[in-house]
Design a protein around this nucleic acid. Structure first.
Lengths: 176, 176
DNA sequence: ATACGACATGTCAATACTTATATGTCGATA
DNA sequence: TATCGACATATAAGTATTGACATGTCGTAT
């Protein structure tokens, strides 16, 4: 149940509407870290407001409600970020596949590994380009859904996956 | 909804009881890839059996039922593993925190980054040791919950996280 | 003998999440 | 001025997952 904290974190960067928050989950945030659809976001914002962790600071055009963190919300975010790392929930379909490669016959395993390496390479190139185009957005998961720290993390993740997949394929091929 | 496929994959490695499968999710599989409690596993095994993807091959002591893949189950696993990668579901509380570091005041951010690097370093050392103690278990998420491919993946992941956290902390400190 | 921890399976209620459906606004462009 | 795509919110039904509860067995050490 990290969705409320994800929202608190995003609102800490800057106030946003539910729509904007929902879109952030479509970007790199949702790709590596946490996903949520707008149907989860809107009710959750309501709960956060009911708990006094966020509040509506502005009602704009098209019924848009801009939410901002309250002091309590900021304190709760801080508490959650600094609290000792209990082994949190992990669900990653892509990584699951990688773990299960060992369950496939050799030829299939090689196919999956090769495809994985290619995809990682492609995503890496794309991410590098996006980052190059937005060099100044130092602290936010913004319009493009990405901050510099997160972008760097993504780049390194893709490199790691690509290199691992190549290594694994080579190893399998060598075993013959 | 990858749980059924996770189970098919694990059963493809070798037949197992629900209890054993549930324990595998406590290990590295659950740490990086996919989690599930026994309360999900048992009913899901029942469903897989009802669909003819798995079957009970042995009833042992203490009511233990050993499940194995059927031909259909193996085919379904293969289909799922080879099918094109729709962007699957991702939920990772730890990575979410990393993304939200930018939302914290500088001192807190540095504290989280430093702790992250230390934890990655510690986990890395532990994993390296486990791997060194089980060098021959080349193709399974076995008793120790780990295969060689998965172990190498874990090692690389930890290194990546550690190095990224160090890089990010350094960068933040340099910005002053 | 008995107590304890690991083995082993299960149900149920509550919570969380997804998918489908619904409604309406605003700005741009054809 | 009509249409379209992006903006914007919302509910409801169905599915998946978690956490609490419940039960019992087997082997080992006291």
């Amino acid at each position: 149940m990290s969705l409320p904290h994800a929202l608190l974190g995003l609102l800490a960067l800057r106030p946003a509407t539910g729509y904007e928050l929902a879109r952030m989950f479509d970007g790199d945030l949702g790709r590596y870290a946490w996903q949520a659809g707008h149907t989860s976001v809107y009710p959750e914002l309501g709960k956060l407001a009911a708990q006094g962790l966020a509040e509506v600071t502005e009602e704009g055009a098209r019924g848009a409600k801009t939410y901002a963190l309250t002091e309590d919300g900021r304190a709760e975010l801080r508490r959650w970020m600094l609290e000792p790392q209990r082994q949190g929930k992990v669900r990653n379909e892509g990584v699951l596949r990688l773990f299960l490669i060992a369950a496939l016959p050799r030829e299939d395993a090689l196919a999956v590994l090769d495809r994985t390496a290619e995809e990682a390479e492609r995503d890496l190139a794309e991410l590098r380009q996006v980052r190059a185009e937005h060099p100044d957005d130092a602290s936010m998961l913004g319009e493009q859904g990405i901050g510099q720290l997160a972008a760097e993390f993504g780049v390194r993740q893709y490199e790691t996956v690509r290199d691992w997949a190549r290594w694994a394929a080579e190893r399998l091929r060598a075993e013959g």
